[in-house]
Design a binder for these strands. Sequence first.
DNA 1: TATATTTCGTATCGTTCACTATGAATTATT
DNA 2: AATAATTCATAGTGAACGATACGAAATATA
Lengths: 211, 211
Amino acid sequence: MTLVSVTMKHAQTSRRKTGRPLSFDREEVLEKAMLAFWDSGYETTSISDLTAAMGVTAPSLYAAFGNKQELFLEAMRRYAGDHTALEQSMAEAPTARDAITEMLRGAAMLYTGETTPPGCLLASAAATGSPDALAVRDAVAAERRSVRDIILRRIAVDITKGLLPPDTQPETLADLAIAVTQGMSVLARDGADRERLLAVAEAASASWGNL
Amino acid sequence: MTLVSVTMKHAQTSRRKTGRPLSFDREEVLEKAMLAFWDSGYETTSISDLTAAMGVTAPSLYAAFGNKQELFLEAMRRYAGDHTALEQSMAEAPTARDAITEMLRGAAMLYTGETTPPGCLLASAAATGSPDALAVRDAVAAERRSVRDIILRRIAVDITKGLLPPDTQPETLADLAIAVTQGMSVLARDGADRERLLAVAEAASASWGNL
DNA sequence: TATATTTCGTATCGTTCACTATGAATTATT
DNA sequence: AATAATTCATAGTGAACGATACGAAATATA
């Protein structure tokens, strides 16, 4: 736990609210909602499914998170986490290729976790859907695009450094990296184990040799 | 009664049925259902959406296709087509690498068609869902696995021919090919145009150089 | 203790879901 | 023309959907 979060927690507990206290840990039930969406998707996970998974009644869910869409967006942000962390780890890698290889390995691990659903929430939860859920799909797409932009910038750094040939197409390589990660999610959903996904990550990384 | 009509009746191949004739072309409305599922997914496309897209009332839909699941499965089979066609075109390619490159190019074209929804039906329509739709997800997964098996066998051919090194991992390369195609579907959904997807296809193919 | 405030569980709300009962309409056969 | 067979459009079915109204319960403050 970071220093900031500790400070925040103390500040929160010191300023007590009047009225009946919450009977559940908000972060805890949000985590369970995230897992439910991760497993079953946005539109295809009902409020009934969510209340069952979270151990919270519907009125409590709405009081704490607003509505289904806001709950999903918050769960997605929790899943995607802080992108500065990804950006920093990629910046620390010696080369863009190493950075992307490491990202692919991380995806292989994440998509085959023993305590989490298979695949990637960003790939699975809102691949398609009704017009009503367009805003959610756009938000998920924006999250993917954000990751792509980080990859893009990291590749650009290596080009300016001369570590990659000047005719390198950073957009195409970033697209390919995103495609491989999202495709690995499909493989995980189809039952591919960690070993298979890691092998795919290595194979995709090997491709960079002649680019 | 002529001899011909008697023969046809007994052979169950009579062209004219008794009773009121169908007011729609079955293949035509199936195509429209396929496009609806392609665009909006299996569970997230309602019967009401389907009847509107197909121009057919609900009772007609059920009379012609059974139920929603059977309609989807038939639409998916229409989408995926006959796999012997894919197998043959891959067999005719000079190398497995050429075959897969051509498959990736074909996917790039298919996922960015001007008269069809973006992306791949197999990737988008049932990425996740409720327990009720498990059978549909399994069917879609089986379709993907079928394509993977075709790639797998094509690679194996080149290994036995000596066109690929004997330590080549056909499973990993097949997984990677599937991952790239399914990932390209996500890119298409996010707005990537044909040029970008074709560039990804070429970049993924280039990877084979050092494997 | 009395009051204000907030969350609790119960019991719904109106709408949409996948699906169908019913009888009129349309055809081939007799 | 009469009959049998099939599809048509209308109008629903019960169940599940996302979301809430409401009063009891639990806390802080006066």
